[in-house]
């Protein structure tokens, strides 16, 4: 059963994404071009300074930033890949039944142990 808005796209759906890509480009690009045409434009060196509460900035903004985010990114990477594996399983869970259930329990157990390990190791703590 299909509910395609455009009948022609029934068998080439991913190509029609280009259309939406183009619409978005046109929307943003058009608005920005329109805005540059109609909006006032005046130069003032103070205006183009990066905002820092009215004080000239000290030092560069682009420095090596201490990221507590880094560890999370790695853990995320692991878990996200695992989640991707879960999706195909989820679709066929109903049809396969018991075997899929046992397999996923083992899978999630390992995943959970991994999370527990990371938790106990203090990787989930913000540094």
């Amino acid at each position: 059963m299909t509910f395609q808005f455009i009948q022609i796209f029934t068998d080439m759906e991913s190509e029609s994404l280009i259309l939406f890509f183009i619409i978005a480009l046109v929307l943003v690009g058009g608005a920005i071009i329109f805005s540059t045409l109609v909006a006032p434009n005046s130069f003032n060196p103070a205006k183009s300074e990066p905002y820092e509460c009215g004080i000239p900035t000290e030092g560069p903004a682009w420095i090596q930033f201490n990221v507590g985010y880094y560890l999370f990114a790695i853990i995320y990477l692991i878990f996200d890949v695992e989640t991707v594996f879960l999706f195909p399983w989820a679709v066929v869970m109903k049809t396969i039944g018991m075997r899929a259930f046992i397999e996923i329990i083992i899978f999630l157990l390992i995943l959970g142990l991994g999370l527990l390990y990371a938790w106990k190791k203090g990787a989930l703590k913000w540094v």
Binding site: E52, C53, I55, T57, E58, G59, Q64, V127
Partner: peptide, 23 residues
């Protein structure tokens, strides 16, 4: 969670940021 109070005065560059006067 316990507060992480690690004031590490290291060799790294200071990241100076102004809060105010227009904040």
């Amino acid at each position: 969670e316990e507060i992480i109070k690690d004031v590490i005065v290291g060799e790294q560059e200071d990241y100076l940021i102004n809060l105010g006067p227009q904040h």
